[in-house]
Design a binder for these strands. Structure first.
Lengths: 204, 204
DNA sequence: TCCCCGTTAGACTGCTGGTCGAACCATCGG
DNA sequence: CCGATGGTTCGACCAGCAGTCTAACGGGGA
């Protein structure tokens, strides 16, 4: 866990370190990011880095947490459906998907960070950080699924863990496919169709 | 690409190398596997290893290919539907999924290898090997999708590339979830439900 | 003035994947 | 029988990695 000392540093230096780390992690992913390059870019010594952070994994986790909080603040929490019926629920999901995609698109670095995060999906060095992040996110998704179940929009015959895994897997595949498409000249991305597939898979 | 020289080695030595590599990759995943440990276990020098393989990634790709071919030989090619109608098509898919899962379950090392493979999902060092593997698999899936469309089992309103991406993403998520479940004592994995989700997402 | 202690520096350790030139040795021509 | 050739094997070596450790710095208090 990041040492409290870090918070006592002058803001400029904190930002220099976090920025250098974000640059490096976004550019190379967790594994191929070099701590040596980060400390060089941040203008601090290795001793100082290890005086403030437990290690590479700790630094990554901290950067990811800060950026995640930033996006979460921009997009806002998932809006639970206010009207009854599956249609309202799923159009809410679609809206949230659109908003998140838009927010992420304005921060390519963060998108790269997320990609790097997903890529290192079972790296033991990141296990603790991932566990922490999972525990932060899954309750929200679980809450969303429960809300969906309450309005009859989500099936009840399969465990939440499986539904979450499949939804994340579909989302990831869709994201990858969307990013691989040419940006211009073609029809707008069929986000409606994508969420539609998700809906068909998850609804009762 | 693995050098043709490798095939000229005495079979015993080929097997010693492949076995050492499989052990190491299965036990530690791609990134945390140590080439030094592999050559030690295989009883060859580093120079020899680099004489037969381009590097770590090449060795991994070769091991994965060999094991994949072995399973493919055991399970056989995907059976295209012989009877008309979506139901026959999807029950064929389900049967194939079951067979593959069963074949994988008898080779825990291979399952571990697959897990390591999926975990390193966009490791740039493995990009070439993954691309190659994808190109080997995609035509088969495309053929399967076409057959499904012919019998009205697969939607025609979305591009094949997207359907394949989503199907692979769902499959990967399901596999990961299945492998994360405790092996015994619980109910058998709901493969029927999994294929059902796939079917709902992909059918017209 | 001196000491204390939070902070900083960077040399160092043990590891990694990958490179390289020397040595080995079976085969072949003369 | 000699010597050259060229495929094969070896392990020392390289740069870079994450992480450790000790010495030194420097401001505040006695």
């Amino acid at each position: 866990m990041v040492r409290p000392r870090f918070a006592k540093l002058p803001l400029a230096q904190q930002q220099a370190i976090l920025r250098a780390a974000l640059d490096e992690f976004a550019a190379h992913g967790f594994h191929d990011a070099s701590l040596n390059r980060i400390i060089e870019a941040a203008g601090i010594s290795k001793g100082s880095m290890y005086y403030y952070f437990d290690g590479k994994e700790d630094l990554f986790a901290h950067v990811a947490r800060v950026e995640f909080v930033r996006v979460f603040a921009a997009v806002g929490p998932v809006a639970l459906p206010t009207e009854p019926g599956p249609d309202a629920f799923w159009s809410g999901v679609e809206g949230y998907y659109r908003d998140s995609a838009a927010a992420l698109a304005t921060r390519p670095q963060l998108a790269a960070l997320v990609r790097g995060w997903l890529a290192a999906s079972d790296n033991p060095a990141l296990a603790r950080a991932q566990h922490e992040m999972e525990q932060a996110v899954t309750p929200w998704i679980e809450r969303l699924l429960d809300a969906g179940r309450a309005v009859g929009a989500v099936r009840t015959d399969l465990p939440s863990g499986l539904l979450i895994a499949v939804a994340l897997g579909m989302g990831r595949a869709m994201d990858t496919w969307l990013m691989a498409q040419p940006l211009e000249g073609t029809a707008p991305p069929p986000i409606g169709a994508l969420v539609g597939m998700l809906r068909r898979a998850l609804q009762p």
